[in-house]
């Protein structure tokens, strides 16, 4: 079993950073030995093509992202299917469903995948802070990740103030 967690979003667009910040937190837990070593965590600005190489070696993929079309603070978890039509018109970033489709097309299989998203409240440029709403949502995102991983053990608390 290998699980890959990818948090993605811009670190300078307010709540858009919730995905990578949640990934950073999970990565610290991994370093502390609070998560099993079959988990790999990546924090990304955007999803790029070469991630296919990591996805194809995974059984489970969990994407963490901010959502602009969800009420602020609401956390949603939904399965992702490979979708070759989810093409980005920009070449340097991709939809997670497109990357899964790359995996299927090139390697004949893709990991089972989930998107855990949190509705953001503030998206200002050059804003390197999460809103209180998003900060609170991060806890629930982490809970969802643990549930998907089948891990129920409580985790050590990490101060939200030290996240960035």
């Amino acid at each position: 079993m290998k699980a890959l967690i990818i948090g993605y979003g811009s670190p300078i667009r307010g709540d858009d950073a919730i995905g990578p910040l949640a990934a950073d937190r999970l990565d610290r837990l991994l370093e502390q030995g609070a998560l099993p070593d079959w988990i790999e965590v990546q924090s990304r600005h955007i999803l790029t093509a070469e991630l296919v190489e990591d996805l194809r070696r995974s059984d489970l993929a969990i994407f963490l992202d901010a959502a602009a079309d969800t009420p602020p603070g609401e956390v949603r978890c939904r399965p992702l299917q490979a979708d070759a039509t989810a093409l980005s018109t920009m070449a340097h970033f991709h939809d997670p469903r497109e990357l899964l489709a790359w995996c299927e097309a090139l390697y004949g299989k893709a990991p089972s995948a989930w998107l855990i998203s949190a509705g953001g409240a503030e998206w200002d440029y050059s804003n390197c802070q999460l809103s209180h709403t998003a900060s609170a949502a991060m806890e629930r995102m982490i809970d969802q990740v643990m549930e998907r991983l089948g891990l129920a053990a409580p985790m050590p608390a990490v101060s939200l103030g030290n996240l960035r």
């Binding site: 790029t48 093509a49 070469e50 296919v52 190489e53 790359w102 090139l106």
Partner: peptide, 10 residues
Amino acid sequence: LAKSGIRLRQ
């Protein structure tokens, strides 16, 4: 060819 592109980028 597609795999080569991915690998070189990686």
